[in-house]
């Protein structure tokens, strides 16, 4: 029958082993794989400023990026490819709430330089290797608007 000291050994041993493996894999991921998959050389000052704007306005409070964030507004990982920079800048610089299909975005009315930084960020995000996310739709339905 399992004794309390066996149970404790199972807990401590399992925890230490799992954590050691996790640390090892994390080290490998961050030191050699992430720089390649994310094209770290492409992190220009514009991209970094764009990331800062992304955070300081809590864009993740409505949108997702890499599938992370809130589910109130569109996924933006591939927004650069989908919409292009003119559309993105129009949404960011608009003095009235952007609301293409009824749902309102905060009217940020960003200056053009900030909008350019965010576009640079989205361009960098667009090129990160995400193991196939977001998936291409299996069907493409034509919409009657």
């Amino acid at each position: 029958m399992l004794s309390k000291s066996h149970a404790r050994t199972f807990f401590l041993g399992g925890t230490i082993l799992s954590f050691a493996v996790f640390l090892g894999l994390s080290w490998h991921t961050l030191s050699s794989e992430v720089p390649k998959q994310t094209n770290e050389a492409g992190l220009t000052p514009e991209v970094i400023r764009g990331k800062h704007l992304w955070e300081s306005n809590n864009c993740m409070g409505c949108h997702t990026i890499f599938g992370e964030g809130a589910y109130y507004a569109p996924e933006l990982t591939k927004v650069y490819e989908r919409r292009g920079d003119a559309y993105i800048k129009a949404a960011l610089m608009s003095p009235v709430p952007w609301s293409p299909r009824g749902r309102k975005m905060v009217a940020y009315a960003l200056p053009e330089s900030d909008a350019n930084d965010l576009v640079a960020f989205f361009k960098w995000v667009n090129e990160v290797d995400l193991n196939g996310f977001p998936p291409k739709p299996k069907y493409k339905v034509s919409q009657n608007k």
């Binding site: 991921t29 994310t38 890499f66 599938g67 990160v128 995400l130 193991n131």
Partner: peptide, 10 residues
């Protein structure tokens, strides 16, 4: 870590 730019072994 599946889809955030980390390797496939995750």
């Amino acid at each position: 870590y599946y889809y955030i730019g980390a390797p496939k072994y995750w």
